[in-house]
């Protein structure tokens, strides 16, 4: 089923590597998004597509923390509890999340909406405490912003946004003073229309305008 549904993606991934095994991680991400988590059947399917022993794929799925071999919520909320986050409000944040949702670490709420986890450094220590939800970054999330965070996530789920626990649609957010989650825009500009083969860039007329 994966192969039929995502043939173009899978073919593109395979073409990037000299050896087919290199496609294991990208394909596991696709399988995880399609099935919500990596069930035994999903892992076997990846093994079959790549013609590799299933044991090898089970080993990989079990090793990496972003592969979920058990069912998770629509949103996987991951809170950094490392130094320095832990000294700047992460512990209070985790307590607030647990109290509000009535679950403990690595548990999912009964409505299947949220799974919460403690994770290690997320490489944004200057904006501690840092949280990821399906790998969307949320910066400066102190305990008083828990309600705003959960509200924003519930709204997006209710809007029917196709959520990707693997982060294929991930964006960066800040929680504004009014409690709304504001996306931090990527500012890469438009895709160039045609190849500028050999032609020097005209500094006067090109872009920026």
């Amino acid at each position: 089923m994966l192969l039929e549904q995502h043939k173009a993606d899978i073919d593109a991934i395979r073409s990037r590597y000299a050896e087919r095994r290199s496609a294991v991680l990208p394909l596991l991400y696709i399988a995880q998004d399609v099935y919500g988590h990596l069930s035994d059947a999903a892992i076997r399917e990846v093994a079959e597509i790549l013609d590799l022993p299933p044991t090898d794929i089970f080993e990989v799925a079990g090793f990496y923390t972003l592969f979920y071999t058990r069912e998770v919520g629509k949103w996987v909320i991951q809170v950094c509890d490392d130094v320095p986050c832990c000294y700047l409000g992460a512990e209070e944040l985790i307590t607030a999340l647990k109290d509000t949702l009535g679950v403990k670490e690595d548990e999912t709420t009964s409505d299947g909406m949220f799974t919460i986890q403690r994770v290690k450094c997320l490489a944004a220590c200057h904006r501690a405490p840092v949280v990821q939800a399906n790998l969307d970054y949320f910066y400066d999330v102190t305990a008083d912003k828990v309600d705003a965070l959960l509200h924003a996530l519930r709204e997006r789920a209710a809007r029917g946004d196709t959520l990707s626990v693997s982060g294929h649609r991930a964006e960066d957010y800040e929680i504004a003073a009014d409690g709304s989650a504001q996306m931090i825009e990527r500012r890469l500009g438009p895709m160039p229309a045609s190849p500028a083969v050999g032609a020097p860039v005209d500094h006067e007329t090109s872009a920026g305008s």
């Binding site: 990527r186 500012r187 500009g189 438009p190 160039p192 090109s206 872009a207 920026g208």
Partner: peptide, 11 residues
């Protein structure tokens, strides 16, 4: 400013 933008980077 905006050096992430491809056109700005080129310019």
């Amino acid at each position: 400013p905006d050096i992430a933008n491809f056109d700005v980077y080129r310019k």
